[in-house]
């Protein structure tokens, strides 16, 4: 890495502080004795200086309000924590799987509770009895209380 071509390939990384300590020392040793490479390094500095002098115009004074306004619009129906659709879109696969599990468990519990409360009119000893036929043929059956 002692010839100019090799050094010049490293000058950008040298200026940017991206060389290892060993490489850095080799470049510095070379720069001490090479006017041409020192001039190239100076050009790199000047280019960087042009970028650093560039000042962006001030941030528009109402930019924050605009962003927050759009964010609130987005949140009307899509705020994290408030919208089911938002959550579903943003949840990971495992979270979706867990949510489906919870939903399935809730459905199962609902069915069990519902089926336990439905046959309140049915008592022990009730029997399924034939009560007639329809014009289409099927037999209509119903639970008939044994007390009746």
């Amino acid at each position: 890495m002692s010839d100019c071509r090799a050094i010049q390939n490293c000058l950008g990384r040298y200026f940017d502080g991206e060389l290892s300590p060993v490489e850095r020392r080799l470049v510095e040793d070379h720069l001490k004795q090479c006017n041409r490479c020192r001039a190239d390094l100076q050009e790199i500095r000047e280019i960087a200086g042009v970028f650093q002098e560039g000042i962006a115009p001030p941030v528009p004074s109402d930019l924050t309000q605009r962003i927050m306004g759009k964010a609130r619009s987005l949140a009307n129906g899509a705020l994290p924590g408030y919208s089911l659709l938002w959550c579903w879109k943003n949840w990971s696969f495992s979270m979706r799987f867990a949510a489906l599990g919870v939903a399935a468990a809730a459905c199962y519990i609902g069915i069990v509770i519902g089926s336990a409360s439905l046959p309140s009119s049915r008592r022990a000893g009730d029997e399924m009895q034939w009560i007639g036929t329809t014009s289409r043929g099927p037999i209509v059956t119903a639970y008939v209380g044994s007390a009746r």
Partner: peptide, 27 residues
């Protein structure tokens, strides 16, 4: 915090980072 629906946290995040984003996008 913004991910849990905390708007004040998001607003602070905007204020802290908008200048850098603006400068990069503008240039």
């Amino acid at each position: 915090r913004a991910g849990t629906g905390d708007f004040s946290a998001f607003e602070e995040l905007v204020r802290r980072n908008q200048a850098a984003a603006w400068s990069l996008a503008f240039h």
